[in-house]
Amino acid sequence: MLAVITAAFAPSAALLAFFYLKDEFENEPLITVARCFFFGCLLVFPVMFIQFAFDEEGLLQSPFLTAFVQTALTEEFFKWFLVYFTVFHHIHFNERYDGIVYACAVALGFATVENIFYLISSGVEYAFLRALLPVSSHALFGVVMGYYLGKAKFSRNRKKTMAAFALFIPVLLHGIYNYIILTQNYWTYAVIPFMIFLWVFALRKVKQANRMQAKHYSKNP
């Protein structure tokens, strides 16, 4: 069991540290980041209950609905809801990049517990593949969500639009990822280019968030 927990936690810790240290200005308090991670861990249970209910009732039969509604919308909505209603108005959310840190922490908390359950049922030998694909993808969805929440936080005229983007775009990306897995016989040939795209897209958001913050400081020294 210790090996499973270690294998599940290690990639999440590495990814969270990576994006945490990408903040070029002011690192967030570790206790606040840890709380977001912990709350993300707890999110797995209501999400699993809802997804189990969908399966039991047979409400979503098509791969498209399963990918985009049962999985992507359910998981990303709960993450978005948690970040928006717990840390969005927090005193430490005071820079554009902060949304990335907090949303990524929530996403990786979720991914860690989900990963533990998967490795318990399927075996720790899948830990490396899980780190490369599901865990990394959750982190990248969190980065994109946090980027738009950061824009929403400091936008004068487009708060609601940016907050909506913070949910819609991760749902879209997550849905595409799941749809590839569900529908392609040789899904690795499609998911690997998509993961490369996700990394490039997310890292651009990281740079843009830091650039916006630098511009803000240059105008308000």
Rank of each mutant, 00 (worst) to 15 (best):
E24D: 07
F25V: 04
F25C: 00
E26T: 03
N27W: 05
N27I: 14
N27L: 15
N27E: 02
E28T: 07
E28W: 00
L30F: 11
I31V: 14
T32F: 11
T32S: 14
T32E: 14
T32Y: 15
T32P: 00
V33Q: 09
V33S: 04
F37Y: 09
F38Y: 12
G40A: 10
C41Q: 01
L42N: 02
V44Y: 12
P46E: 07
I50Q: 03
Q51P: 01
Q51V: 14
Q51A: 07
F52T: 15
A53C: 04
A53E: 08
F54W: 03
D55T: 15
E57M: 13
G58Q: 10
L60C: 07
L60R: 11
P63Q: 07
L65D: 11
L65W: 05
T66S: 10
A67M: 01
F68A: 05
F68E: 02
F68W: 01
V69W: 03
Q70M: 06
A72W: 06
E75N: 03
E75Q: 11
E76A: 04
E76Y: 03
W80M: 11
F81H: 00
F81E: 00
F81M: 07
V83A: 13
F85M: 10
T86C: 12
V87K: 11
V87D: 06
V87Q: 10
F88C: 02
F88T: 01
I91N: 10
F93T: 12
N94L: 06
E95C: 01
R96W: 03
I100S: 03
V101W: 04
C104I: 09
V106A: 02
V106H: 00
A107Q: 03
A111Q: 05
A111R: 01
T112Y: 00
E114K: 05
E114L: 08
N115R: 00
Y118E: 00
Y118K: 03
L119V: 12
S121K: 08
S122T: 10
S122Q: 09
G123Q: 14
G123V: 15
Y126D: 11
A127W: 08
F128D: 04
P134S: 13
S136Q: 11
S137D: 01
V143Y: 05
V144P: 07
G146Q: 14
G146P: 04
G146M: 13
G146W: 13
G150S: 03
